[in-house]
Amino acid sequence: MTALTARAPSRFLPVIATFVVFVATFGVGSLRYEGFATGQVVANLFIDNAFLIVLAVGMTFVILTGGIDLSVGSVVALSTMIAAAALRAGWPAWLVVPAVLATGSALGLLMGVVIHRFQVQPFIVTLAGMFLARGLCFVISVESVSIKDPTFRALATGTLELPGGVTITHTVVIALVAVAVAAYVLHLTRFGRTVYAVGGSESSARLMGLRTGRVKVGVYVISGFCSALAGLLFSLYMLSGYGLHAVGMELDAIAAVVVGGSLLSGGVGFVVGSVAGVLVLGTIQTLISFQGTLSSWWTKIVIGVLLLAFIVLQRLIVRRS
């Protein structure tokens, strides 16, 4: 362990821990259950959690600045609803997709501006955003609206074959592209580095002459955009729009980011970590379904325990430095 800590700076420790947890849980599964350690099980992890990966990517930006976005689950629901309703009204798919993405980004922009300009806590503003988005779903329709558009259906059912007979869906590709873009933005652009700087110390960032206001609003726009994208992926997954879709998904996204090694106080974390966090949550779910006798609620308890473990780990790291 000392050799590891000597080589890897402590900021990588939580992410390494996440991967260790992922490998460990997956290892337990492959030892105990036949057919667990197959490429398809791994692929299914991505297929079933593509939307959550995108959501966690957006949440990572917000949490890196020390903020929080409670609205993401509701924006996912609103996006499925807008997509389904617009398609039902006869809009072409190529128009629906940008419309949904624009709506999500606009909601994010609105919240970001209120947070930054009026200095209202992100918690309350995004809580209001959560109510607003969820409520707007029901303004459109109280019922579930199914999606019959051929383009959407083709995208949803189409699969890609990878070497080794593993198939994945288009949503996985989209999610991975989102991860790659996010990693690029965070690590190789000034905007991204300013996100880290703001999370590290906002006052220092301002004294260094960085454009903190733009970043503070920008991360909510990104989170809104990612929520809308995740909503589109979710509508492909469910092939319907419904106001009760994705209830509580913001908690899954936050949990994935925290388990992925990001500090909720900001400044520390990686998109890759958040993806690993999603995979850990997904593996636990898969494990429990393979087990068969264990009930689904164990998932929540295990996630809670994992959250606790990572929070305590991070407290220890913070105290030591």
Partner: peptide
Amino acid sequence: IIATLVLMTAGRGIAML
């Protein structure tokens, strides 16, 4: 906010348990 998030997540699982 994080401290109570733990029980918020795990609590419903416990209730279902």
